[in-house]
Amino acid sequence: MSNRKKTDDAPGNDTTLPVQNSRRNFLKGLSIAAAACSASLATGCLPTTARAAESGEQFALQWQEYFKKHYRLMTQKEKDETVARLERQAKLQSGLDLQISTQAPRENVLYGYAFNITRCEGFMECVAACIKENNLDRKAKTQYIRVFEMEPGQLDPGTGDGKYFHEVPVDNKFYMAVQCFHCEKAPCIKACPTKATWREPDGIVVVDYDWCIGCRYCQAACPYFGRRFNWAKPSIPKEEINRKQHYLGNRIRPMGKMEKCTFCIQRTREGKLPACVEACPTGSRVFGNLLDPESEIRFVLKNKKVFRMKEDLGTDPKFWYFID
């Protein structure tokens, strides 16, 4: 996991931003200049001290961010600009050097997920990895993944214990994990009044955190408890923040917005596996491209006995359970 560099950067340590590509840096410079200009226009005078310039710049950044468009309506240039603003804001506010990607879906990819009920032993490594990777609110103890300890004879997580806290595995129990199932006919997408959540061409259901108004209708509409709301401002120790982020993925959510599992969009669009898959010590988690006949997920769907949760609702999830 080379990308996880929470490591030795002490807070406030002024490391320069790694040069990613010159175009983005150029755009960033441009937008900073523009922001500084509009800030000084707004205050009606040229800022005299660096501090005043900084607060003026912050104000300008907030202003521009407030009036930005829906992500899907942005041109690539506009996406680059908002990313530059967000990165600059993080730098000004907490001295963090973020790299926020807007990487588009890969061609001919439709992600699918399968979960091996026989193998999972309930270690919850997936949960821990997800929390770290996706910058989940530590104070509210937000979890995208829930693991249920199940009694034999049941296959509905609703009958299991989602709050177990003891040594695992326990004899004569089995474990089932749930998360957002990235439904093809997702009730949450239909519910959203502002089109702030949608399904990307690669099958990932995402949220535009800055477009969401926080009405929570999607949360009521989800039959799988797949969505989480930021009831307060998320709090994550600075040194634990994953700085490699995606606009639609693990960037730190504002207060009052909805969030959810994105199949680790910041990783999977770069060809890596989601953090939960990589972290699982038992190999219970299978992730891959449903359109690739050679993929492991296709092998599972073809050769194992699979089922999905609440098939009767017709949501067509892209998440299967299987039994060895």
């Binding site: 309506l73 502002t194 702030a196 108004i213 929570r216 207060m255």
Partner: peptide, 18 residues
Amino acid sequence: LGGPLQAWHLIPGIGQFN
């Protein structure tokens, strides 16, 4: 609303009305 300041996203024309 969690984001009352974003309520303008609901206004047809300037927002995205689903």
